[in-house]
Design a protein around this nucleic acid. Sequence first.
DNA 1: TAATTATGTTACTATTCGGTAACAATTTAA
DNA 2: TTAAATTGTTACCGAATAGTAACATAATTA
Lengths: 198, 198
Amino acid sequence: MQENLTKEEKRKKKLDVILRNAAKAFMERGYYKTSLDDIAKMQNVTKPTLYYYIKNKEDILVKCEEITCGRINAMLDMVMAQKSSGYEMLYNFIKEYIIIITDDVARCHVRHRGQMEDEVLRKQSIQNHKDIEFRVREIIRLGISDGSLRDCNSTILAILLFDSLNGLTSWYKSDGPVKEDELIEEVLMLVTQGVRAN
Amino acid sequence: MQENLTKEEKRKKKLDVILRNAAKAFMERGYYKTSLDDIAKMQNVTKPTLYYYIKNKEDILVKCEEITCGRINAMLDMVMAQKSSGYEMLYNFIKEYIIIITDDVARCHVRHRGQMEDEVLRKQSIQNHKDIEFRVREIIRLGISDGSLRDCNSTILAILLFDSLNGLTSWYKSDGPVKEDELIEEVLMLVTQGVRAN
DNA sequence: TAATTATGTTACTATTCGGTAACAATTTAA
DNA sequence: TTAAATTGTTACCGAATAGTAACATAATTA
């Protein structure tokens, strides 16, 4: 088809289509109610063909996770490289995070992380999230020590923040009634200012 | 055994044990990886016995939902009956909500709501949550109009609030390192004050 | 062109598990 | 006591589905 793509690129693209379709189906119908046959049909191939691209069903979750965590960590690298105040870093992190997880592959990861049946994979998945959470705690601590953030329990705050951000994945649709700009604005206002009138 | 209990009370108690054990197992291993045989074994009965207390597997989720939503709505009745400021109502709601969802049956409901396979049940489940969310939006609107809460999009705020509160169910354990009081305090501070230093 | 590698298919296995029929024992009420 | 309702069991079925073996074809490369 596309003669200008190398073999490797074509393979990568097909894997991406598989992940994207699977992720969407998992979000709509749930992981266990989506069979590999269902996923195969979306690509107009048969189930065994999938096994050329993935090790097994669970590997879809793992690959979605790798992609998403890779993006988040790269974003964190960028945000933290700017050496601004903790408040500004947190602000930028939230802004970028919302953009990243507004994507089927990322949503799939958020919903299924830490739920692999294979224990090794499950532990790795939990660790991946802990690593990211640790980096966000670092930002919060920075903000507290430079005086730009209120003194608080950084662990609890980080968790609460992730909960409300990750919760977006189950209701926010980029083509829905709430616009992305407005959403980011509200989240940022809530997190930074709270709800109490001044 | 307990001669002082009526037939109905005994039945109710057994159902409660089933729900509690099932909810716990669903939270630990996941709904689809917990078989009815597993649940039956926890009560030292066999699978068909469960069917005397529940209609089918999904009915466990429905019953967990009924119990939990009943509690939340009763709590909302109380909170709203006090006719205090919107801010105070929201404050009290958050405080009580955290207490309610620190319970296996409630956690099970939060994790599985809106995921029933039967369409009628699924829609009912979604509606149940919408009703509760509506009542909280009402509190927020009250607070905005009485000036105790910052002007904001009550819909988005309500969702974000529920996301972070419901997120508690997947990490908060009443016997864990974080004390309930401290948790409530941090949540309330985050929601009301935000993270920015004054 | 020949050989090799990549990509795909059909057909099948093995297993899990929700749900049920048929039957047994126990408790409660008449 | 006897009949009826309640609570439980054993043994089974049917459907779904993850994963695989064996085989077929297309695309690359030597």
